[in-house]
C-alpha cells in the first residue's frame, strides 16, 4: 500500500464526515421515520417523496440547488450568516448538510420499514400497561426497531463514504476540509497517479464489501431471531 499523507488525511476526513452525518441522520431521521410510519395525514405521500428524491436525482442537480440555497443569497445561507457562521459551501459543515440530505433516504426508509413492521398491537399493549407515548417509544419502538437502526446506520455511513457528485459541487477540493477519499481518487486519476489511485480505490472496494457483508449478516441474524414479530 502506498498511501500518502494526503491520502490518509482524506480517509480521516471521510470517516469523520460519514460518522457525523450518520449520527445526525439517526437523530433527525428517527422522528421523521416514526411520523411516516404512523401518520394517516395526506402529507405522508409528499413528505415520503421528498425524502426519497435523492435516490433518483443526479447528484449534480441536488448539489446545484444546495449550492444556491447555502450561498450568500440562499435561504440556508442567509440563516447561517445571520447566526454568524458565514456561508457553508466549501466547508466541512457544508458537506455535512449536503450529505444529510443526500443520504437521508438510506436512513429513513429502513427505520420506517422497521417501525411499520412493529404494528399497532405492541403499542396498544404497552398503553394498557400504563406506558405513555414517550415511554412506549423508548421501551417498545426503539428495541423492536433495532434491526432497522443497524441497517440504517450501515447504509447511511456507507452511502456517505461513497458520495462524489454532491461533494464536488458543494465542497470542491480543499485538503483537510472537503477533500474526501472519492475526490482524492479522482485527483490521483486526473494527475495520472494510477498506483495511488489503485491503493485508495482498492481500500474502498474492500471497505464496501465488508460493510455489505456485515449488513447481510445482521439482517440474517435478525430474521432468524424473528425480532419485531409478536409471538
Amino acid at each position: 500500500m502506498m498511501l500518502s499523507e494526503a491520502d490518509i488525511s482524506a480517509i480521516w476526513l471521510t470517516l469523520k464526515l460519514a460518522s457525523t452525518v450518520t449520527i445526525l441522520l439517526l437523530i433527525i431521521g428517527t422522528p421523521i421515520a416514526w411520523w411516516l410510519a404512523r401518520t394517516r395525514s395526506w402529507l405522508k405521500g409528499p413528505i415520503a417523496a421528498i425524502v426519497a428524491l435523492p435516490l433518483v436525482l443526479p447528484p449534480t442537480v441536488l448539489g446545484f440547488y444546495l449550492l444556491i440555497a447555502m450561498g450568500p443569497n440562499g435561504a440556508i445561507g442567509e440563516f447561517t450568516q445571520s447566526i454568524g457562521l458565514g456561508t457553508l459551501p466549501f466547508t466541512f459543515w457544508g458537506l455535512v448538510v449536503a450529505s444529510i440530505i443526500y443520504s437521508m433516504p438510506f436512513v429513513i426508509q429502513p427505520l420506517q420499514n422497521a417501525m411499520e413492521a412493529i404494528g399497532q398491537r405492541p403499542l396498544e399493549v404497552a398503553a394498557t400497561l400504563r406506558a405513555g407515548p414517550i415511554d412506549r417509544f423508548f421501551t417498545i419502538v426503539l428495541p423492536l426497531a433495532k434491526p432497522g437502526f443497524i441497517t440504517a446506520s450501515i447504509l447511511g455511513f456507507a452511502h456517505t463514504v461513497g458520495e462524489f457528485g454532491v461533494i464536488l459541487m458543494i465542497g470542491g477540493n480543499i485538503p483537510d476540509e472537503t477533500r474526501v477519499v472519492s475526490v482524492q481518487v479522482y485527483d490521483h486519476v486526473e494527475s495520472l497517479e494510477y498506483a495511488q489511485a489503485h491503493s485508495l480505490s482498492a481500500l474502498l472496494v474492500i471497505f464496501s464489501f465488508i460493510v455489505l457483508l456485515a449488513l447481510y449478516w445482521s439482517q440474517r441474524k435478525n430474521s432468524s431471531a424473528s425480532i419485531g414479530v409478536m409471538k
Binding site: R121, P122, E124, V125, A126, A127, T128, L129, R130, A131, G132, D135, I140, P143, L144, K146, S226, I227, G228, V229, M230, K231
Partner: peptide, 17 residues
C-alpha cells in the same frame, strides 16, 4: 395509559424482546 384497566388480548401479546 391513564385508565386503571388491565387488558388481555386475543392473541398473546407479550413483548418479543
Amino acid at each position: 395509559h391513564k385508565r386503571p384497566i388491565g387488558y388481555v388480548f386475543q392473541e398473546a401479546s407479550l413483548f418479543p424482546h
